[in-house]
Nucleic acid binder design. Structure first.
Length: 643
RNA sequence: GCUGCUGUAGCUCAGAGGUAGAGCACUCCCUUGGUAAGGGAGAGGUCGAGAGUUCAAUUCUCUCCAGCAGCACCA
């Protein structure tokens, strides 16, 4: 028998018979390692302990201490254990797929009866029983016909379909957890007892299309979370609780920012404080854009069908547009995008190369008939305001302009405290307009700009818009969640469709290239993200209510108004609270409403012309002179770009 | 849009085949209180909408609307 040489992480080499399993390698090292071992990494591949090793290789044996591998195995085995539990309880259930995902796994089932929340407890109990049996996990490679026959005989059509979609030259691997069998590429643990029985939880049931295709049957998906230990599960559940507390829909209500109504699903009713925040964001962006050489315009909300036909939206997105037929029998559409309107403005005069790059910005409100199931608070709405702009430039200016947008976007996110930004680059989709040459140029410009800016980015093949490739800026919030906000798209097509030109230096007409970009993206969405990121405790300059001046006795009422007026005159958002309530009551109420500063004033403050300052989240109060508080409040209220 | 769940006062929720209840919020009164709920009284609901079953429906059935979780979608 041939001998192979395995190299361990510490550099040691040992010789074994070819075909030795990783389990046997572990056993050759020590009895305790062989017990604790969960899997191996062989030449970079995650390796089941039962798999044979046929040639020289680098090898590392994993135990539960190896978090990454342990999580993957535990979650993957739990997917199988859950499927087994479900089939034991409801034998008529058909199994499909059950992959590992962030923090856990899911498994999709086909069963007539819906799973109820109570069923989850029953399944969990059964799973724990299976784990406690400590049954071995075993594996075999089968040939395709045998596997298909097996699943046909067992009435598992989804598995048959899966096998048929696996390339013919790939071996099919079967796994057994006890006597329950599943097609699986592995790797898995040694036995079910290696799964920590107290570190998983079934979370919820939901529908999911077979193979992610909305034309295929809807299955029932059960989600679970799992970790290598109880404490980690607890930490994760705490995180979910924390995220729940930050829900902008709840905070928006508690802070009196906005609400929704059945009469306008997916459209926001902004209340005064919420609208103030919204306008603060627009004011900030307006200044940043003006400094960056943009000009602001406004284009109509309702425009004739002909325009949308020219732009391509009518045929590509009609189902998602709000349409309006008028009494003169014309078809109009509410604008789902600002670009066609901006095309009309660009085309209105003869343009010179001297005017380029021309940057047209609009805080345009667009309407999109989003599928009802997609709506979600401020994060996914049917009418929203974009900080939209279109940059018309020459092909030579393209990369430079992309770079400028990239710089601007990062600088702006930084002002809001978002320093961790990732970029997604989406390339040409199957359903697209325009020549391959123009797509080459567009994608090239974006890549070059990203490379020159030294940005990290991930490529998403085929995910671009129908008219051009796009960058999407994803920022990470205070508790590690990712939010997609800004976008930058290169477009050779729209200028062509609209016949846009400019006169070159040599007096000829040429087509401009166009950039679509939005930095906040949707103002509504960005507001929601800010609320969640700050858990409602917005920085002073953004806070929709900045200062409440609360009287301790009614004898201070006049002074309260004096302070409020003084703050307001200085541009600070101040309110009086002279209600017939105790100061405790007022402090509690305004604290819950996340007002950043409460000024309490009683006899002492009136006499000394001071204020007692209580900042949100601090128990400690400090007495300051009116003038010194005014000074700090003005400084705090100043937007970062004006400091 | 699809699957499942939910819809009772401004908010959070209880309730039952015989036309409704709590706490908070709201209004008024007492209280002038020093940093997260002082006390009392009062007002407030076509029980999401429509149809059906029934002597009787807010409660049961169906349809629709909206919300929630996920899937699909996201120009």
């Amino acid at each position: 028998m041939a001998t192979i040489s395995l190299t361990f992480p510490d550099g040691n080499k040992r010789d074994y018979d070819a075909g030795i399993t990783a389990a046997a390698v572990a056993e050759s090292i020590s009895k305790s390692l062989s017990k604790k071992a969960i899997s191996a990494t062989v030449n970079g591949a995650h390796w089941d302990l039962q798999w044979p090793i046929d040639a020289d290789a680098d090898i590392a044996i994993h135990t539960m201490a190896d978090e990454a591998q342990a999580n993957e195995l535990v979650r993957h085995d739990l997917a199988h254990i859950m499927a087994r539990a479900v089939q034991e309880i409801w034998p008529d259930t058909k199994v499909t797929i059950g992959p590992v995902i962030d923090n856990g796994w899911y498994y999709d089932f086909d069963r007539k009866e819906p799973f109820t929340p109570e069923d989850l407890g029953v399944i969990e109990k059964k799973m724990k029983e299976i784990i406690n049996k400590r049954e071995p996990v075993t594996t075999e490679v089968w040939d395709r016909d045998r596997a298909i026959q097996h699943y046909t005989d067992n009435g598992e059509p989804y598995k048959v379909e899966l096998i048929e979609s696996i390339p013919g030259d790939e071996p099919l691997r079967m796994y057994w957890h006890g006597d329950w069998q599943d097609l699986c590429r592995g790797p898995h643990l040694q036995h079910t007892g290696q799964v920590p029985a107290d570190a998983f939880k079934l979370m919820n049931v939901a529908g999911a299309y077979w193979r992610g295709d909305s034309d295929r049957p809807m299955l029932q998906r059960i989600y679970g979370v799992a970790f290598t230990g109880k404490e980690k599960l607890k930490a994760h559940l705490n995180f979910l609780e924390e995220a729940e507390k930050r829900d902008h829909r709840r905070l928006g209500r508690e802070m009196g920012l906005f609400h929704f109504e059945e009469v306008a699903p997916g459209s926001v009713f902004w209340h005064p404080p919420g609208w103030r925040l919204f306008q603060t964001l627009i004011g900030y962006m307006r200044r940043r854009q003006e400094t960056a050489g943009y000009v602001e315009v406004n284009s109509p909300d309702i425009m004739d069908r002909a325009l949308w036909e020219t732009s391509g939206h009518w045929f590509n997105y009609m189902d998602n547009m709000f349409l309006a037929k008028t009494h003169d029998d014309r078809d109009y559409a509410l604008k789902p995008m600002n670009c066609p309107g901006h095309m009309m403005i660009y085309n209105h005069s003869l343009r010179s190369y001297r005017e380029l790059p021309m940057k047209i910005a609009e805080f345009g409100k667009v309407h999109r008939y989003e599928p009802s199931g997609a709506l979600h608070g401020l994060l996914r709405v049917r009418s929203f305001t974009q900080d939209d702009a279109h940059i018309y430039c020459t092909p030579e200016q393209l990369t430079e302009e992309c770079l400028k947008v990239n710089d601007l976007i990062l600088s702006i996110y930084k002002d809001f405290g978002f320093e961790n930004v990732h970029v997604k680059l989406s390339t040409r989709p199957e359903n697209r307009i325009g020549s391959d040459e123009s797509w080459d140029l567009s994608e090239g410009a974006l890549k070059t700009a990203l490379d020159r800016a030294g940005m990290d980015y991930t490529i998403f093949e085929g995910e671009g818009a129908f008219y051009g490739p796009k960058l999407e800026y994803v920022l990470r919030d205070a508790i590690g969640r990712d939010w997609q906000c800004g976008t930058l798209q290169v477009d050779y097509n729209l200028p062509e469709r609209f016949g846009s030109t400019y006169v070159t230096q040599s007096g000829e007409k040429a087509a401009p290239v166009m950039l679509h970009r939005a930095l906040f993206g949707s103002l509504e969405r960005f507001t929601g993200i800010l609320i969640e990121n700050f858990a409602g405790r917005l920085p002073f300059w953004l806070a929709p209510r900045q200062v409440v001046v609360a009287s301790i006795t009614s004898e201070a009422d006049d002074y309260v108004y004096e302070v409020v007026d003084m703050l307001k005159a200085a541009g600070v958002q101040a309110e009086a609270d002279i209600r017939n309530e105790k100061i405790n009551y007022k402090v509690r109420e305004h604290s819950l409403a996340k007002v950043p500063v409460i000024l309490a004033v009683g006899h002492r403050e009136v006499e000394e012309r001071t204020v007692s300052v209580r900042r949100l989240g601090e128990k400690q109060t400090s007495v300051q002179s009116l003038d010194s508080f005014l000074e700090t409040a003005i400084a705090d209220a100043t937007a970062p770009d004006l400091r």
